[in-house]
Design a protein around this nucleic acid. Structure first.
Lengths: 341, 341
DNA sequence: TCTGGTTTCGATAACGTTCTCGCTACTATT
DNA sequence: AATAGTAGCGAGAACGTTATCGAAACCAGA
């Protein structure tokens, strides 16, 4: 295969010293004189030495690798989370292995099960919306494998989790719609099994109740813009039409706006729309989509930080971290629309 | 750290046979009877055995891992390419390690240099637009490390490359603008150092020449929508304004459309716009953006396939693969605009 | 009964590193 | 001058697996 790489032995032989001394000189430890250290480091650089992680990983059972298991990356939220994970991991000298489940519980189980426990130090996971049986994760916890969930988190598995504050975000979204004068509000919710779906739904319901308003419909479906369109057509075929839509995420909100435009319904003026995520496209679509901004990048960094803490000290207590969201007001919730759409 | 995992030795001891036999039984090889094999496999499953990749990687110098080095993933193209890579890799039982350079040549060099050669079997890379010195890659090639470039490829390093047909795509885009009746065509190009920038520019220039048309301006800048806006304002401050824009990518094209809308210029009717990528947002923006679709997913799969071939047989010849693009006509190149914008 | 050929398995040495000893040589203390 | 302490280094085992070599055990043919 590839050429033989220079090892610690080669350096030892070249300098006429033992491998143990070279090894000690490499990681700046005690028990080695400053001059031999420098000598070793210099020749190591000269001979283009790279440590063999398989060997170190074998003796100290710990590879500096973490696995990230995620439904997909072809959307703003997940790709930004991964960016955060990656940056923090690299800073801490960890390497990230990427696994995509494509929102299939089968693949998720397969990946987690087949993932050689010895090949990573810990896992960062975001479950599929299909997953109902979490035994593959529970097995990991039993084996003391560090595991942190983010965004979509199972309630049964007791590990650290890092999420955005979905409940408060949903409250803010609903409050905003009410403050803008909308009162017949419907919610396009996510897949029912997910924790974040429930949190956002609850925030919506609680805020309505607080203002003595009734829900004008809740539909559970997927996260795509196509789902948004479909839900709208069923929603508007009913007798009592809503005058505002709170969508569980932005992409679904795009479908809502597109559908309303096609129907000739004025977005904002006639029907207000608010999303959740702050996908960059929400600025581009017209009318632009009001939304609740999620701290995706910070969620990535934070969950990686928590994981590495768990890896480095097994006594680190389980964390339940919730990061704040932010209301971003754009055109889709303005009563006097700018006239586009 | 984590609990001690069951090893091959444990299985051997439990069955009263040698580790060699267990090892042989694991990978269904000759030299082992069917019954002992079954016995080994059964107890392995019972004891929840997982192979230690560090150990196998140490003895057969080959981890089943590939590194993917990419400028960013927070956009449609890259995240889709990665999806393709990931799926093919998993099918072939390879695991992918992700490295983000954030379009920084410094980080790229650092990652490639520090990447322990022993920790991956091969590399899949897409260079930053800053990179001018490729010695860090050339060192890998000299060390016989399998390396495949995709999308943004350096010309000096002689390795396999997988790209979309940028030249023909640019020709198609320009031909389409001309066919729609535009004649004063400008090109918002990418960073000058990149191969794909040059290819798309050349396709544009050659097509203009073929039709005896002159270029109404070429501006080199980055890939963002902000770059698109900036370029437009400098372009429209000159004396001879273009009546069509060919943008090197879709995101920049979004900036163009947004800027035109703000100026009250009718997109399509007054100024035609075409992009390159087929980002999903190009369907959502209004007017929707005509574009050249890139086979991002296939590029991911194909480049991964080529890399794994290189890993598996060192005699596999260097490949230069170019995948076809496709013209997608939408509203932004229609002379009679639908009236939005 | 002997020879030669399979089939199936065990011992043992690798792979590159770290870790635990222990040994030497030097310095400080009395 | 004798002892204790310490700094610096080497020898060897260990990590979990695969690869090489050889040794049983069995069978067939003469």
């Amino acid at each position: 295969m590839t050429k033989r790489l220079t090892t610690i032995k080669d350096i030892a032989k070249a300098l006429g010293i033992s491998v143990a001394t070279v090894s000690r000189a490499m990681r700046d430890t005690y028990d080695v004189s400053a001059e031999t250290r420098k000598l070793v480091l210099d020749t190591a650089a000269k001979m283009n030495y790279r440590p063999n992680f398989n060997a170190t990983g074998l003796v100290k059972s710990g590879t500096h690798k973490i696995a990230v298991i995620i439904p997909a990356i072809t959307n703003y939220y997940f790709s930004t989370v991964i960016t955060g994970i990656q940056e923090y991991a690299l800073e801490q000298n960890y390497q990230v292995m990427l696994y995509l489940t494509n929102d299939s519980a089968y693949w998720e189980t397969k990946v987690v099960r087949e993932l050689s426990l010895s090949s990573v130090d810990g896992l960062l996971a975001c479950i599929t919306y299909e997953t109902t049986d979490f035994s593959h994760f529970e097995e990991l916890v039993e084996a003391d494998m560090p595991l942190v969930f983010f965004d979509r988190v199972p309630e049964s598995v007791k590990t650290s989790v890092v999420v955005q504050d979905d409940y408060t975000g949903a409250c803010m979204a609903t409050e905003h719609l009410i403050a803008q004068g909308y009162s017949k509000i419907a919610h396009l919710a996510g897949p029912p099994g997910l924790n974040l779906t429930q949190q956002r739904l609850q925030g919506y319901l609680d805020t309505l109740k607080k203002h003595n308003l009734e829900s004008y419909g809740v539909i559970h479906s997927g996260f795509s813009d196509e789902n948004g369109r479909e839900d709208m057509s069923t929603l508007f075929n009913s007798i009592s039409r809503p005058d505002a839509i709170f969508s569980v995420n932005d992409r679904k909100g795009f479908g809502v706006i597109l559908w309303l435009r096609e129907q000739g319904i004025m977005v904002g003026e006639e029907v207000g729309v608010i999303g959740f995520t702050n996908d960059p496209t929400s600025k581009i679509i017209s009318p632009s989509l009001s939304t609740i901004a999620e701290p995706a990048y910070e969620i990535g960094r934070k969950s990686c930080e928590v994981l590495i803490r768990h890896i480095q000290k097994q006594s680190y207590p389980t964390q339940q971290i919730s990061l704040p969201t932010e209301l971003i007001v754009r055109e889709s919730t303005q009563r006097k629309s700018i006239g586009i759409g």
